[in-house]
Amino acid sequence: MASQSQDHYFVPDASIYPFACSIALFFIAMGGACYLNGFAFGPNLMMVGFLGMGALLFKWFGSVIKESPEYNMDVDKSFRMGMLWFIFSEVMFFAAFFGALYYLRNLAIPWLAETELLWPGFEATWPSSGPVGADLVVSGHPDATAVMEGTKYGLIDPLHLPLYNTLLLLTSSVTLTISHHALRANKRTSAIIWLAATVALGVWFLYLQAEEYIEAYQVLGLTLGTGVYGSTFFLLTGFHGFHVTLGAFILFIVLLRMMRGHFSADKHFAFEAGAWYWHFVDVVWVGLFIFVYIL
């Protein structure tokens, strides 16, 4: 590549982290499988895995940060490309769930409705919890006893919490961009403040989403078990929420580092990677807002 510069491409020394992280991953996976099958030690095993993984990644990233002055532009570029392709893989992960939503809603439910012989009287509507699922109350709060018995469920009003959440996330993308510009202009304090605002908006989003889930479960009777509607609703929003958590965490670390004086106006890959991730999470939310809540 013509851009390959004269100095060395940084090849790190031998490192124990990858191997150790694999063991931690093994604990998480095995622990998870055991937990789901009722083994009492499952959660503990998982916990050990998570803690180990956390500690290891902390050290691993620590060493990357320490090495970073040695990285030349090519290494930097590798990191950038790596991050972008990683985000692409995340896009495909969400694509699977959006695809499932499309299929269930536009194909499976109508087919079931056509199958008079097996499901007499079932009609194709959306939202739907399937032929033997609970009835849908158009929206708002169904009567409490029906919810308790699991025969009725209500919908989240898209113009309430979800709309706030949309605004929160969109705003957070803006604040993040302002912070980035500030960093590039070497206005450190301003960058820190706007980044802190971004993280705060992210946390606020998560708080509202938690509230929404509580409402769904306790008031609306809308749960994971509410047929395909509940399944797609909770898995899509849930995985998104999980990604927001991760993104907010990344940005929080970046914030801490910024407060410690890391990053310069022209070299701040960690910031940018976090920002890309955040924008990706944002875009997914817009998709969710449209396809899950509104349509």
């Binding site: 789901l36 499976a108 079931l112 033997v132 078990g225 047929g227 509607y229 509940g230 399944s231």
Partner: peptide, 24 residues
Amino acid sequence: GAVTMLLTDRHFGTAFFNPAGGGD
């Protein structure tokens, strides 16, 4: 994604692949 749906169908009551709940 596919095996995750399998996992939640198995353990968390989702209905992606269960016609009774509208799945396929």
